[in-house]
Simulated assay, not measured.
Amino acid sequence: MSESSSGVNTSSDSLPKSHTSHCSELRDTHTPLSVEQSPDSGIVATPLPSHRFRFISWHRLEESDVRGDQLACPRVREAGPTEEELFLRGEQNALQAAEERQRSRRRRRREDDGQKWEERLQENWENCVELNLSYQDLGDPYQLENFTRILRRLIRVERLQLVDNSLSDLSSVRLPRCKYLNLHRNHLTSIRQLPKMPQIQHLCLSENGIGALGELALLGASPLQSLTLRRNPCQFLEDYRPRVFSCLPKLRVLDGIPKLPEDSVPSPMSAASRLCTIL
């Protein structure tokens, strides 16, 4: 019997033989710790090589063989405001040592600005071609500001996923080469709030708050081929599909359904239904 450094007595003789044999079998087979088993199918699935880095910014990975395209939805939002910034917002009630707080805030701001500048030089967002920045949990304007800064640097991105980010206005962003954009489940209420996308071909706006169809004409000059507007208020408007195709003559697919002959012009039955017949 021996005593470990933590003060707990351990002994291999005190363990049952079945337990010791089971442990030896595990040592012989070298079962990886990252292997997970699905309770439904019983199939053993190994996570991606980047699974252990899922909470780390991709540009901070050092001495690893993980590529950037193996990171799904990497976190890009910065930490929340400092205590001093919250104090200036009026979210704290402590009023003591205000001058000392201000001096320390200026000193730390100079240090943080230098560190952030070095980190942003390593990000290299300008060369991203395919990017998934979904589920960022942008709960504070401080984080949304940094997120918008990154979007403005995506000058070469062609496929971009921005699912469930609570985005309400991207009009200040320009994506000159973007061909596929997924904005599913956000807070957009107007086509005018979309980024500038002169090369857009496939656009998903499902589960937003878009209510008007007339603004679709703003996308008329783009080579848009497929559009998804499911679960928006505009989907329940009269002559929904004909009106969308009239605004976008180049459109081929709407909500996953190809353009049908009856989508070319408003149906005459719909016009007759507006008349009131008195018997």
Rank of each mutant, 00 (worst) to 15 (best):
I257D: 02
S222R: 12
H187F: 15
L183E: 02
P268F: 05
I43S: 07
G211K: 03
A98K: 09
R230Y: 04
S18H: 09
P268H: 01
R149N: 09
G211L: 04
P74E: 00
A79E: 14
C276L: 13
S273H: 08
I155T: 15
S50R: 05
S21E: 11
S57R: 13
N127Y: 08
I191V: 06
S246H: 11
L33K: 10
P258E: 00
L138F: 02
G209S: 08
I56R: 07
Q143H: 08
E111R: 10
R120W: 13
H19C: 12
P249G: 07
L151H: 03
P249V: 09
L237I: 07
Y135H: 03
A221Q: 15
H202N: 13
A212G: 07
N93D: 15
E84C: 14
L183N: 07
E25T: 14
L167K: 06
C178K: 02
V8M: 13
H202D: 10
L205N: 00
L71E: 00
R159M: 10
N146C: 11
M197E: 00
L144K: 08
E78L: 15
L33P: 05
L224S: 04
R252T: 12
V35P: 02
L131W: 02
A271Q: 08
C234E: 02
L133Q: 00
R89P: 04
Y135T: 05
R89L: 15
R107A: 12
G220H: 15
D69E: 15
M269H: 14
A72V: 15
D164Y: 07
A97F: 08
R120F: 11
E262G: 12
D164G: 05
S18F: 08
E91T: 14
P39Y: 00
T46E: 11
Q199G: 08
I191N: 01
L254E: 02
S50N: 04
P16W: 06
E123W: 08
A272N: 05
I43D: 10
G220Y: 11
Q122W: 07
P223M: 07
D137K: 13
Q70K: 05
N132R: 00
S41G: 04
N132L: 01
Q143G: 05
P223W: 04
H187N: 15
D112Q: 13
S172W: 07
K179S: 14
R54I: 02
P32I: 01
D69R: 10
N124Q: 09
N132D: 08
S24P: 05
S38T: 04
C178Y: 04
Q37L: 14
E78S: 13
D40Y: 11
P198R: 07
A79P: 10
